[in-house]
């Protein structure tokens, strides 16, 4: 599962939906793997408007990647900044979480990730 996916997922517990602490989920004991993907600047530029940048900054830091700037780059800045393009590409498109847990900051429930597949099925007492 690509790290970018964490920008689109949240805790599955209903009562967590209204809490800002349920997003993004926090990786724990994460084992990362890297996949070779060809860099596509257009893709990264088009991703910017639909990424929650603050959440991405959190995820990036928690996974041990270099701290992202406080504000997202503008399309022009990103296009002109080869290093930023490359860093974002590596983080979003090439890095996959293979093992570990995703933890909700609100209810502390831990979702297991095994062989790259996260399990969001809730135990019956949380449904």
């Amino acid at each position: 599962m690509k790290v970018l996916t964490l920008n689109f997922l949240t805790c599955a517990v209903k009562s967590c939906k209204s809490s800002s602490d349920s997003f993004p989920l926090h990786p724990k004991d994460a084992e990362l793997v890297s996949d070779d993907v060809e860099l596509n600047p257009q893709l990264l530029v088009n991703l910017l408007p639909r990424i929650d940048w603050n959440a991405l900054r959190t995820t990036s830091t928690e996974l041990g990647f270099p701290q992202l700037p406080e504000q997202p780059p503008t399309p022009e800045e990103l296009q002109a900044d080869e290093k930023m393009l490359k860093d974002l590409h590596t983080l979003l498109m090439e890095t996959e979480m293979n093992e570990g847990k995703l933890v909700c900051g609100n209810c502390s429930h831990e979702y297991a990730v095994r062989e790259g597949i996260a399990n969001f099925l809730l135990p019956s007492h949380l449904v």
């Binding site: 599962m1 690509k2 970018l4 996916t5 920008n7 689109f8 997922l9 949240t10 805790c11 599955a12 939906k17 997003f23 993907v37 893709l43 498109m93 996959e96 979702y111 790259g116 597949i117 996260a118 399990n119 969001f120 099925l121 809730l122």
Partner: peptide, 17 residues
């Protein structure tokens, strides 16, 4: 296109609004 991956879950329960 670009495949993010797959996850186990119940419908869209874990998908961000």
């Amino acid at each position: 296109g670009y495949h993010l991956g797959t996850a186990q879950g119940d419908l869209v329960g874990a998908v961000r609004a």
